[in-house]
Nucleic acid binder design. Structure first.
Length: 657
DNA sequence: AGCACGCCGACT
DNA sequence: GTCGGCGTGCTC
């Protein structure tokens, strides 16, 4: 028996070996084979009874490597590989290298997670119990059951997850729990260990996990030990034979899509896996993605709602326009409306806490010349440089740093014509401190919290109510639980609303509702003040109860302009250092796709220059393909895949960010 | 991807 | 005369 293998050391060429001992070997099996003088790991790709032709001598397969038993695994990897235009062998390499890696230094927010009281299992509410009762039979009987758990913030989705995990483990099955960020995974893992640490095996598999824990998980997989597996991206592609349920928390979060190539989405993979393995999958969120709500409406997914808050009540949401001429002249700072200023004053008087949220996305501050209106841009990237503390200019794409020049580089005006525009946590802190000199202010963002000890200290101060106003970015919308917050102010709500992405409004609204949900988790009478430059339709859906209405409107718009979830979208990015080459090749690829495309319902858009078309001196072009199914797109891409280009090509199905 | 082989410069 | 720099090329 002859077998064609692929080496795990990265060597791309398939090699032939033979074996009589292991002649019943299946494709996808991990083996050890002799290569030159040593034994290396490889995976069986194909089998053949006829000797391959070629001038080389065929050696014997040395042994079969121990690898977790998972009968569906190879088929599953092949399916996701097709979907993401990858080589299925890549997944083995990835797992291998991940097991070898040691953990990185990670900001561990020790002290804040303990404040969440989950010490002993709490009896489920009627709402929670009916969800669990509907899903548990599918765990026991192993049947595909896609469920969307639409539960408002603080409605106790965690309790439902726990009930499902218990059901799986008590039937000797494993449970897979996915969270959109490492930080949240760490948080959840601690919560589960506190509750189930003595009764069940709990393993995490992400960048902040120790080498030993990864090894322990691998052993558990090898021995098919029922376990709770927690992670962000990696665990969903692990070989798990006895998987009973997959839970995807905060399913709307764009964090499930990997930031760099290959840009896989672990939520999508989780859905594919649940279907193939015939198990239930639960996607939970207070702000479900448009695509999941679409799946409920059109593709037979099951919807469960938790519309009651566990404690506290929903905050009152108010909108105020920053551009309003009347208040602008009267108020003391452009960035703090009269309404918000008064509300903060009341909070200070009542001795209750306030969160001020800045939803900046990478940039916040840039320079602009008052004479020529030009901004200082990075020499290697097509983006404006961001102003940081100590008058430093930083490129958020390549890390380039310099100081703010006194002369405008573009018009050479030396008369201090460069002014800083925009808003960041630092600025808000300064403004607010000026408005309320006695207020105790804490800033929480990635810049100011790289120091773990400082963060822990700050969180403790907040918890002990030694802080009146918390100013922060995205990081405060997730995970942290501030029970004493009764006012949330969003400084510039429409900042990202017009981001050039088809899902910009969806992402923006989800973020606003999530941050608003930080208010009044344990108390009634909370307020949320949204400041925006202009009114927008999404602000009328800010109330958590009205969120579902947003789906109908957003879905109607996407149907008209043809964007997911109504159709499927593939982003093809071409990159090359030479702008002329990438432009020519992108034009060539687009016309080739058009030439091969015979369907009326498949559209090829572009090539176009992306908003940030140059990063680290590498120029990019985008081509988008829209079609009724991803399969049609795969077919079309396959036809052009023989053509080679100097530019590197990255394909992202259903890009989210 | 690794690892051997090899061809040429620095140094005991 | 040897040690070792890393450029090229091969792996069933």
């Amino acid at each position: 028996m002859f077998v064609q293998v692929r080496l795990l050391n990265g060597f791309r060429e398939p090699l032939w070996y033979q074996t009589e001992v292991y002649k019943d070997i299946l494709p996808g099996t991990v083996v050890k084979v002799p290569l030159r003088g040593l034994l290396v790991s490889a995976i069986i790709d194909k089998k053949s009874s006829i000797a391959p032709s070629g001038n080389f001598k065929i050696r014997d397969v040395a042994s079969i490597e121990s690898f977790p038993v998972d009968p569906c695994y190879w088929l599953f990897l092949q399916q996701i590989s097709t979907y993401y235009f990858l080589d299925p062998f890549w997944f083995f390499k990835r797992i291998g290298s991940f097991l070898k890696q040691s953990e990185q230094d990670y900001i561990d927010n020790n002290g804040t997670s303990e404040q969440i009281v989950y010490s002993s299992p709490i009896a489920l509410t009627q709402e929670q119990k009916s969800v669990s009762d509907a899903i548990v039979p599918h765990i026991i009987n192993s049947s595909y059951f896609p469920a969307l758990l639409y539960g408002v913030t603080a409605s106790g989705k965690t309790e439902v997850y726990c009930a499902l995990i218990e059901a799986a483990l008590s039937h000797n099955k494993s449970a897979l729990l996915l969270l959109p960020e490492v930080f949240l995974a760490v948080h959840f893992s601690r919560l589960l260990k506190q509750r189930y640490g003595k009764s069940y095996a709990i393993y995490s598999f992400h960048s902040a996990v120790s080498k030993q824990e990864k090894k322990d998980l691998w052993q558990a997989l090898l021995h098919q030990k029922p376990s709770i597996i927690i992670g962000v991206h990696l665990p969903v592609t692990l070989p798990i034979s006895n998987l009973g349920v997959i839970i995807v928390d905060e399913e709307h979060d764009v964090g499930y899509q990997e930031k760099k190539h290959p840009r896989m989405n672990s939520k999508e993979i989780a859905i594919m896996r649940a279907k193939m393995y015939n198990i239930p999958i639960v996607l939970g969120s207070a702000t479900p993605s448009i695509s999941s709500l679409y799946n409920v409406e059109k593709r037979g997914w099951y919807l469960f709602r938790l519309m009651k808050r566990f404690a506290g009540s929903f905050p009152k949401v108010e909108l105020t326009l920053l551009s309003d001429g009347h208040t602008k002249t009267k108020r003391r700072s452009f960035w703090i409306s009269t309404q918000l200023e008064q509300a903060i004053a009341q909070q200070l008087h009542k001795r209750e806490q306030t969160i001020l949220f800045i939803n900046r996305r990478g940039f916040s501050f840039f320079t602009q010349c008052t004479t020529c209106k030009q901004s200082i841009t990075c020499s290697q990237c097509s983006v404006t440089l961001t102003v940081h503390e100590n008058n430093r200019l930083v490129c958020h794409y390549c890390g380039f740093e310099s100081s703010v020049p006194s002369i405008c580089p573009s018009c050479k005006n030396s008369d201090d014509s460069l002014v800083k525009r925009g808003i960041g946590t630092q600025q808000v802190a300064t403004i607010v401190q000026k408005l309320f000199p006695t207020a105790r202010i804490a800033r929480i963002d990635m810049d100011s919290t790289v120091n773990k000890k400082k963060l822990v200290a700050k969180l403790k101060e907040i918890q002990n109510q030694e802080i009146d106003i918390i100013i922060g970015t995205q990081s405060i919308t997730k995970g942290y639980h501030f029970p004493h917050v009764t006012l949330v102010g969003v400084i510039w709500a429409d900042l990202n609303l017009h981001f050039p992405r088809y899902n910009a409004t969806e992402v923006c609204l989800q973020q606003l509702i999530q941050v608003a949900g930080r208010a009044g988790r344990q108390r009634d009478g909370s307020r949320v003040i949204i400041q925006a430059m202009a009114d927008h339709r999404i602000f009328s859906y800010m109330n958590e109860i009205d969120y579902h209405t947003f789906y109908y409107e957003e879905n109607r718009i996407r149907s008209e302009v043809l964007y997911p979830p109504v159709i499927r979208l593939l982003e093809v990015m071409m990159r090359h250092t030479n702008d002329d080459i990438v432009e020519r090749e992108a034009q060539d690829l687009a016309s080739l796709l058009n030439a091969y495309n015979k369907r009326q319902d498949v559209y090829i858009l572009g090539p176009a220059k992306p908003a940030v078309y140059k990063i680290k001196n590498i120029n990019a072009r985008m081509i988008y393909i829209k079609a009724p199914s991803m399969h049609m797109i795969e077919q079309l891409v396959k036809k052009v895949s023989e053509h080679t280009y100097q530019s590197s090509i990255t394909c992202t199905p259903n890009p989210l960010s």
